[in-house]
Write a protein that binds this DNA or RNA. Structure first.
Lengths: 201, 201
DNA sequence: CCCTAAGTACACAGATCTGTGAATGCAAGG
DNA sequence: CCTTGCATTCACAGATCTGTGTACTTAGGG
């Protein structure tokens, strides 16, 4: 049951802020099930009572963790989309511009992918956040590719999504240092190839 | 400490076989920390004592789970490499031939990536298996690309690894049905592009 | 015939987990 | 002044976790 009343990330009390920050670090570095609420409370310098008063449950805290991370990532992309030029191909590739920066926080892999592996219950309030993060990126590619003049963007959008997600895996697990740049270059090649293969422009 | 004496997957007692099978299903579907040894034992129709007599610890069972999965996946690739023709580019792309089949078992994502997110302890006996699975694939691409006549295979190998891993993510989380085929096509394009861009043959 | 390997039965230790109840302190704002 | 929001303190319930100790059964092979 999604009866969990979602927390408003914009109006967090100081204590709640600290709880969320600590939980984010611990969940990401150690895994969600591996971190207990006692640890989170202690590490935040807060009592367990406060944690439950602010967030209601561990599951809701997990959802808030994912939401805040999703929000930060999207804002990085939104910023570049706003300030960036109007060149349609560049707009498609904005997530790959952000990727090197994002990878700095991804030594332990992608938080959403990791959480997906842990949250098997389809009703868990965090599941939606995870799926939406990925579908949002897929949508971004679809939309911007269309604007760039790609008639059938679907397969290419999936390819770009795969490159993007896989780069995080290649970097964090296989230790491929240049994964972000490699993925960026590949993405550009594929887009240009599609444009050429489709007629002139 | 890696004091865990690894289990020999080839000489498992009937009970141990059932334990490993059940554990594999449960670990993959629900996550490693979410499944207790009591559940595994009960579901295997075996006592907890037997589980510990055969595997020694949960961590060792986890490692065995990853090893057996790694082994099955590699054998799928090895088979096609053996029987397949000698066309060097086809050999590079064999993992992408296997991918659609492999994705049938990947509704909950990649077991290695998921396990990586859960096993934060660098000393965990499963960590090596995970890292080796990914580096082995990267190595495969590097080697076969070299045989295909690519002078500097490194960036391309990373791109192919990213495509491969990302396709699992795109399929399992974003619900991209044609992810395997899309990744395969992209991989082929990138390889051919590299061959062309490098001079004639 | 007896030894060994495989497994059962079952209790239990000790830790850790999520979550709650009830009373209290304290500061800011109406 | 008094309410309201935030947080503390602390005890505790009840479940679940990994792992062990001990004694018994059963089947196959030398």
């Amino acid at each position: 049951m999604p009866a969990t009343p979602t927390v408003d990330l914009d109006s967090l009390t100081p204590g709640a802020r600290r709880i969320l920050d600590t939980a984010s670090t611990l969940f990401y570095e150690q895994g969600i099930h591996a971190v207990g609420v006692d640890t989170i409370a202690a590490e935040s310098g807060v009592t367990k009572r406060t944690l439950y008063d602010r967030f209601g449950s561990k599951d809701a805290l997990v959802a808030a963790y994912l939401q805040s991370r999703d929000r930060r990532w999207r804002s990085m992309i939104a910023t570049r989309l706003d300030e960036g030029g109007a060149d349609p191909v560049s707009r498609v590739l904005v997530p790959f511009d952000v990727l090197p920066l994002w990878l700095d926080e991804c030594a332990r892999g992608c938080s959403f992918i990791n959480a997906f592996g842990e949250l098997h219950d389809a009703d868990h309030p965090g599941r939606d956040v995870i799926v939406e993060e990925k579908t949002w990126l897929l949508d971004h590619f679809r939309t911007t590719l269309t604007h760039a003049g790609i008639a059938e963007p679907e397969p290419l959008a999936v390819q770009l999504l795969s490159l993007h997600e896989g780069a995080i895996v290649a970097y964090s697990i296989a230790g491929a240092a240049g994964a972000a740049e490699a993925a960026h270059a590949a993405a550009r090649s594929l887009v240009e190839l599609a444009l050429v293969g489709q007629g002139t422009r």
